[in-house]
Amino acid sequence: MTATLNARPARAEAGSGAPAAATGPARRGRRPQRALGSTIGVNGILVLGAAYMVLPILWLVFAATKDTKDLYGTGAFSFGDFSLWSNIVDVVTEGDGIFLRWMANSVMYAGVGAIIGGLISVMAGYAFDKFEFRGKGALFGAVLVGVLIPNTATVLPLYLLGAAVGLTNTVWAVIIPVLCNPFSVYLARVFSAGYVPDETLEAARVDGASPLRTFFSVGLPMLAPGFVTIALFQFVGIWNNFMLPLVMLQNRDLFPVSVGMSLWQGYAVPQPEFTPMVITGSFLSIIPLVVAFILLQRFWRAGLSAGSIK
């Protein structure tokens, strides 16, 4: 609002320091009605957009409470016999509790990938930001090329190489590739430039701390919000990954929940009684992610803005 100082004096009343929302209606008599109309219009379109985004998820919630008969027989947003609990029991007891095993696998792959992969990326991004060395431009160029190559384009080559060295169908086949995330390195460099002032590191160095020690006791704590953002994005990316585990794993005990659900979906074609299990399993598998997104809003906002603007 300080800009009003430069505005022509005759119109300066338009921004006399009041909050922007309150300045509009004062100018002309017709203004309040038009503002009311556009308020309804603008918010109305947003409500429609929000409904489009939320209703399919809501449908899943309602569908998870129904047995096969009610799925076909009752309205989409009404309850039938409320079979949620028996559906959940069916899901977790099927195949000696294989669903829980898939969930645990997903948590393990995504957790390890997020924390260790995140740390590796933060270290690299920090080095690109804080250190000067020969070949820095070329190495960072390689990182950027890595950002631009689609993940799925390297999945089959990874499988072919993995098969040649006998690593397919092991946990390593799905963990090692996801530890390497060039986009996280790019984000980490942006965060490091923003969060860690060079002077602090210089002070730590004068105090006699080694570069590694400085990183872990000074740099990393300052980068903590950036680390959480990067780890969150990696967690979600790995949890959502489908093609890599589908290609790499044959042993269903190693499946993450995404591949498991697609396996059950295949069963449901000849056996319709699997349909409520696919729906309830899908519902259970998105709960951790939706909760994480709602609780960690601050961090995904930070990641999306750092990734695009800077």
């Binding site: 489908f242 598998s285 998105i286």
Partner: peptide, 27 residues
């Protein structure tokens, strides 16, 4: 300027991104 509840709308619009591609396709 006239938009109300900006944070809530952002969250609602973003929510589908928290749903894995496999589950979105299944839904």
């Amino acid at each position: 300027i006239v938009t109300k509840a900006k944070r809530a709308f952002q969250l609602f619009l973003f929510l589908p991104h928290a749903v894995p591609g496999v589950i979105a396709a299944l839904i």
